[in-house]
């Protein structure tokens, strides 16, 4: 547990020193969201209808943008080899890395989401569900992304390859994340969708560290 928190603390410290990285992701999230009103037109009705989906797609893309860096710098400077040789299970290392990614990417996205809701004319009833859905959904994104980030280490075309591997696996989170907001907008309980999102997060928590750790092991072999 100590090494787990030490790893998270290390990653957070690194993220603070390179704060522009996290801010770039946040700026990307906001810019992608802003593009939609400009593209589909500023009519409030249309924006309110597509708002939840736009926020989710932008969050997915923003989370993915920072994902390829989850293990890349450790792989480049050899830290990863030490982590693989370290006496802690590699699965714990993966969990620490994914948690740090969520703290530096997922949390800022959640914090910025209400502002995006205002820009997209989201109905007031939708905000609670949007924030809850993002809070339950973004950890899954970081965890699933860890598998992809570990798989592409040392490959020739990292970023584009990562999106091809990971975006299809993000689809369930996207579907239920948007469905939760839609439900709350139509005065139906968003509870089932939120429970499914929580289930996806728990399943990702239990399952993704194994393939990610396997990928890391074969990457440094």
């Amino acid at each position: 547990m100590n090494s787990f928190s030490a790893l998270i603390a290390r990653d957070l410290r690194l993220a603070c020193r390179q704060a522009s990285d996290s801010l770039t992701v946040l700026a990307f999230f906001i810019l992608v969201t802003v593009l939609f009103p400009l593209a589909v037109g500023p009519e409030p009705g249309i924006l309110a209808r597509i708002g939840a989906g736009v926020v989710w797609v932008a969050a997915l893309l923003a989370a993915m943008l920072s994902m390829d860096r989850m293990f890349q710098s450790d792989y480049d400077d050899g830290t990863l080899e030490l982590l693989v040789a370290a006496p802690i299970p590699l699965e714990i290392v993966v969990l620490a890395k994914a948690s740090a990614h969520w703290l530096t990417t997922g949390v800022p996205l959640i914090a910025a989401a209400p502002l995006m809701g205002v820009l997209l004319n989201l109905e007031p009833e939708g905000y609670g569900a949007l924030l809850l859905a993002l809070a339950l959904g973004t950890p899954s994104l970081s965890l699933i992304g860890a598998v992809g980030a570990a798989l592409i280490l040392g490959s020739r075309r990292g970023g584009a390859l990562l999106s091809l591997l990971i975006l299809p696996l993000f689809v369930p989170v996207l579907i239920f994340g948007v469905a939760a907001v839609e439900a709350s907008l139509t005065d139906v309980s968003a509870r089932p969708q939120l429970l499914i999102l929580a289930a996806l997060a728990l399943a990702a928590l239990a399952l993704t560290p194994w393939p990610a750790a396997a990928a890391l092991r074969q990457a440094v072999e």
Binding site: V147, L151, I152, G154, S155, L161, L165, A215
Partner: peptide, 17 residues
Amino acid sequence: IENAFDDRARGSRAAAI
């Protein structure tokens, strides 16, 4: 991903995962 590595063995294992 199978074709994304210069080392074919690495591509094989990554693709298998």
